[in-house]
Simulated scan of single mutants.
Amino acid sequence: MSSAGFPAGPRRGRVALVASVALTGAVLAGCGAEGSGDAAATFSNRASPPATENFSGEPPSPMASAAESMKAEVKASASAAEASASARASAFEESVSDATERTRQEFEEQLDGAEGQGNAMSEVGLTGKPLSETNGVRAHVVTIRNRTDAPASYAVQVDFSDADGKVVETRIVGAQDLAPGERAQPLAISRKPVEPQLTAKIVKAQRY
């Protein structure tokens, strides 16, 4: 018997049981705390990086994007310059030329039917005009002189070539019903910008 009046054995058993339950609760609480800590570590408010495995290729670099933008600007500027040059050339041509669409078609037909460089290369010449006299338009004087003993008409083709010798523009002019010894000086007017420089050359002349 114990001093409290209860048998010693059962009391010890109850004490051991209470201690065991308390220890188990502490262990479980500890595990729960650890689990909560892991869960807190698992979730985050930060955005996840994109899944790059779903994409192919590489995004354009800032330098590449700038280069493409510069190319577009240069192309647009060149197009605007060419349009402006064409408009000025058209206005200048209208102010100095008396050729009609019908006469131009006639000249073209005569040149299409010519053999080689035509039969009148020795009767034509080419001289450039200063830009100050043409409102900044590239223009060349085509001098035509009838060196025969009978009235004649002439059709002349002028090609404009770049520094590589590539023909970038062709202009056709002419003169009708020139008397023997008479001279005419139509203008071959380029519709291209004055830069880069182009070389003008008479490539065909036909007397008819």
Score class of each variant (00 low, 15 high):
Met1Trp: 02
Ala4Lys: 08
Ala4Gly: 05
Gly5Phe: 04
Pro7Ile: 02
Pro7Leu: 07
Arg12Tyr: 10
Gly13Val: 14
Arg14Trp: 14
Ala16Lys: 09
Val21Leu: 13
Val27Lys: 05
Ala33Phe: 01
Glu34Gln: 08
Glu34Asn: 04
Gly35Tyr: 12
Ser36Gln: 07
Gly37Lys: 05
Asp38Asn: 09
Ala39Arg: 13
Ala40Glu: 09
Ser44Asn: 08
Asn45Arg: 11
Ala47Met: 09
Ala47Arg: 07
Ser48Tyr: 06
Pro49Met: 08
Pro50Asp: 11
Thr52Trp: 11
Asn54Ala: 13
Phe55Gly: 12
Phe55Glu: 13
Glu58Lys: 12
Pro59Val: 09
Pro60Phe: 06
Pro60Ile: 05
Ser61Lys: 13
Pro62Ser: 08
Ser65Thr: 13
Ser65His: 02
Ser65Gly: 04
Ala66Asp: 15
Glu68Phe: 15
Glu68Tyr: 14
Ser69Glu: 11
Glu73Trp: 13
Lys75Ile: 11
Ala76Tyr: 15
Ser77His: 15
Ala78Glu: 15
Ala80Arg: 15
Glu82His: 13
Glu82Asp: 15
Ala83Gln: 15
Ser84Ile: 10
Ser86Asp: 12
Ala87Ile: 05
Ala87Trp: 08
Ala87Arg: 11
Arg88Phe: 10
Arg88Leu: 14
Arg88Met: 12
Arg88Gly: 06
Ala89Val: 07
Ser90Asn: 14
Glu93Cys: 01
Glu93Gly: 09
Glu94Val: 05
Glu94Ile: 07
Ala99Ile: 03
Thr100Ile: 07
Glu101Arg: 10
Arg102Phe: 07
Arg104Met: 03
Glu106Cys: 01
Glu109Trp: 00
Gln110Val: 02
Ala114Ser: 13
Ala114Cys: 09
Glu115Thr: 13
Gly116Ala: 10
Gly118Ala: 13
Asn119Val: 07
Ala120Gln: 04
Ala120Cys: 11
Met121Phe: 06
Ser122Asn: 11
Ser122Gly: 11
Glu123Trp: 00
Val124Asn: 00
Val124Tyr: 01
Val124Leu: 04
Gly125Asp: 09
Gly128Met: 07
Gly128Asn: 11
Pro130Gln: 03
Leu131Asp: 01
Ser132Asp: 11
Glu133Val: 00
Asn135Lys: 06
Asn135Pro: 01
Gly136Thr: 03
Val137Glu: 02
Val137Met: 04
Arg138Ala: 06
Thr143Ala: 15
Ile144Asp: 00
Thr148His: 07
Ser153Met: 10
Ala155Thr: 05
Val156Ala: 03
Val156Gln: 01
Val156Ser: 00
Val156Phe: 03
Gln157Lys: 15
Val158Phe: 06
Asp159Leu: 04
Phe160Glu: 02
Ser161His: 00
Ser161Glu: 06
Asp164Arg: 12
Gly165Cys: 00
Thr170Arg: 11
Thr170Tyr: 02
Ile172Phe: 02
Ile172Ala: 00
Ile172Tyr: 02
Val173Tyr: 01
Val173Arg: 00
Ala175Phe: 02
Gln176Ala: 09
Gln176Arg: 13
Asp177Lys: 11
Leu178Cys: 04
Ala179Asp: 14
Gly181Arg: 08
Glu182His: 08
Arg183Pro: 05
Gln185His: 05
Leu187Cys: 03
Ala188Phe: 05
Ile189Gly: 01
Arg191Ile: 11
Lys192Cys: 07
Val194Trp: 09
Pro196Cys: 06
Gln197Met: 08
Gln197His: 10
Gln197Asp: 12
Lys201Ala: 12
Lys201Trp: 03
Lys201Ile: 06
Lys201His: 06
Ile202Asn: 01
Val203Ser: 04
Lys204Glu: 09
Ala205Met: 02
Ala205Cys: 04
Arg207Tyr: 12
Tyr208Ala: 03
